[in-house]
Design a protein around this nucleic acid. Structure first.
Lengths: 186, 186
DNA sequence: ATCCTTGGCTAATTAAATTAGCTTTAAAGC
DNA sequence: GCTTTAAAGCTAATTTAATTAGCCAAGGAT
């Protein structure tokens, strides 16, 4: 039994790759173990079971989303910033559908859950974009929630092939950016 | 073995109740059988397995959403219609979280999938509201997708406790209605 | 009254997560 | 370099759930 030298991080990273390839639901301890060259019980030396893997995967994905969004928005303002924000999320979901699915439906385990910190970083980027529009602080929470809902809704609907018909989703996406942009200028 | 007289519909209806009580993920053939006073294998005389139950549940939920929305929007126009539309969906998700979860992630099995027809009825109601705003037909698809994304995103985020902080989601919801309403008058 | 389809059952199989308990590696301390 | 020992793997066993096979009775149709 040659030691593989796994870490908790290896397991989660591997789960992320698996999720993107075969879907979040398809991630099982068995497949994960296969991919890591190990037997399923061995994984329990590094993670706390499947639920733990799923939760850590959600945290990883939310962290990556935060990074991608922060980078995309850097130095931009107004419509450019808004478009960059939405495009970055959409791109992430397209590139990493399984990872993103992990974030939908993940519940917070408590006030010190790292998933909460990761979510807050995403929210901070949204807030930064909104400040560029001069949104009053009293309305900030509402505006953040509205933008977040729209981003998230579009991403999940598109990812689950919710858009039928032959109208190009790209065009709808552009239209949506324009719609929000106009709304934020009021 | 007294005959229970189950139908396919009974099974799905029971699954819907169970999903709302314990969550969509919690619905198993075993619990379903218990609730119907029958052994798990007997269910296979009426449905095609768990995946079939889940898909039929999604169809039921989408149909109910369509009904609820259509009724809510009846006779209204403009902001009233928009508010009624969004409020009706939000109310449905609150009242039937498990059912609604079934619709997220349900894949269409083909062009004659009844789930597609049910989805189209929802879209028709959205389109009716938008026509009241005088949206051009060329933009209709984009507008529908935008509204749908926002509705769906808000509903799913709220349902999974995605809104932290103490700001009342009700207020954010009202703000969002106003935001979309203004945008649609452009 | 008899047929025969249907709906329910038990028993068995498969798949997956998880737990218990054993063994070996390899790093740390002497 | 040798010994100790915690960590990382493993096999075997348990549990839970879905599903399939095949049996049997209920109860409507003839």
């Amino acid at each position: 039994m040659p030691r593989v030298g796994l870490t908790s991080n290896d397991v989660v990273t591997s789960a992320a790759g698996l999720a993107d390839e075969i879907g979040f639901q398809g991630v099982t301890m068995g497949l994960l173990a296969d991919r890591l060259g190990v037997r399923p019980p061995s994984l329990y030396k590094h993670v706390d079971g499947l639920a733990d893997v799923q939760h850590q995967l959600a945290t990883l994905a939310m962290t990556e989303v935060g990074d991608v969004i922060r980078d995309a928005v850097q130095g931009l303002a107004g419509r450019d910033a808004l478009a960059a924000l939405l495009t970055a999320l959409r791109g992430y979901v397209t590139a990493h559908p399984g990872r993103y699915m992990a974030t939908t439906g993940a519940e917070l385990t408590g006030p010190d859950d790292p998933l909460l910190a990761a979510s807050n970083r995403v929210i901070d980027s949204i807030a930064a974009v909104l400040r560029g529009y001069g949104i009053a602080e009293t309305q900030m929470t509402h505006a953040i929630r509205t933008i977040r809902s729209t981003m998230h809704g579009f991403a999940t609907l598109e990812a689950s092939r919710g858009f039928q018909w032959d109208t190009d989703p790209d065009e709808s996406f552009e239209w949506m950016i324009g719609f929000i942009d106009r709304g934020l200028r009021g």
